[in-house]
Design a protein around this nucleic acid. Structure first.
Length: 256
DNA sequence: ATGTCCTCTCTTAGAGGA
């Protein structure tokens, strides 16, 4: 089973690129972030025509997450992360598909930092920590994937010294991310490629993609019972070079 | 500060977010 995550940066503006990539790589499950579309403007029919069922949580202008699946039933288990009733951002959707719980998340960016946006990001990480722990208790296979907006280590950014004060790289943000990992989750990309420079995001500014000035911020966290089923993983980085591309590239794993 | 791209609106230019 191939599971992919892709921050599309506007699902309607990105539709030709998204459909081209789906046709090219045919993932079984796809988690999308940054739909930037209200609930009623999600391109459901175009995705059905491409062979994908979908569930989604839209929002006007910002955020928005979706899960797509090809030839498999999507049993939605949750939308929205527990722990803050007044949080109206569409940033989490979860489903049970083919025996695996799949959480699709879009973590807050947190900039400018310090400030209220960073505080919201840290609260969100704390809520994710609590929910991740709950998920592990059930003993089911779980994949938590999406745009974490967290650069885990110095090795995951082209020039760490430039990012020290950024909300994607600040010590308290990384610490919160590593606290979640410490529950027993496995960072799938790093598990298979511990030594390789791997990026998932290249800014639109300053020819970042051309210079390979990237960040690794889109992650797959696997529950312990999935680690032996992890066979392959990668970044479809060529997609970032397409016309009208998102600033993220699609990332994927292959489970037996 | 700037660079770029997306979406929305007091819309075809500017603001906000990333």
């Amino acid at each position: 089973m191939r599971i992919a995550t892709y921050n599309v940066n506007g699902v309607n503006g990105r539709l030709p690129v998204l459909l081209r990539w789906l046709e090219e790589t045919k993932p079984d499950v796809v988690c999308l972030q940054e739909l930037k579309a209200p609930q009623e403007k999600f391109p459901e029919q175009a995705l059905l025509d491409a062979g994908y069922n979908a569930i989604w949580q839209g929002q006007k202008s910002w955020n928005g997450v979706a899960i797509l699946a090809r030839d498999m039933e999507i049993k939605e288990t949750r939308r929205g992360l527990p722990g803050e009733e007044e949080d109206e951002h569409s940033r989490y959707i979860e489903a049970f598909i083919n025996g695996v719980v799949i959480g699709c998340l879009y973590l807050p960016n947190g900039n400018p930092a310090p400030g209220p946006k960073l505080e919201y990001k840290l609260r969100w990480l704390s809520r994710l920590n609590a929910h991740a722990a709950e998920l592990l208790k059930f003993g089911l296979p779980v994949v938590l994937t999406g745009d974490y907006n967290v650069i885990p280590t110095d090795f995951d950014v082209y020039k760490p010294e430039r990012w020290v004060d950024d909300a994607l790289f600040r010590p308290e943000v990384r610490a919160a991310f590593h606290e979640i990992i410490a529950q027993g989750w496995t960072d799938a990309i790093r598990k298979l490629y511990p030594e390789e420079k791997i990026y998932t995001f290249w800014d639109y500014f300053r020819n970042a993609y051309g210079r390979d000035a990237g960040l690794r911020i889109d992650h797959f966290l696997l529950s312990p019972n999935l680690v032996d089923r992890l066979k392959q993983a990668g970044v479809d980085r060529h997609v970032r070079g397409w016309e009208k591309s998102s600033d993220h590239g699609p990332v994927w794993i292959e489970l037996t």
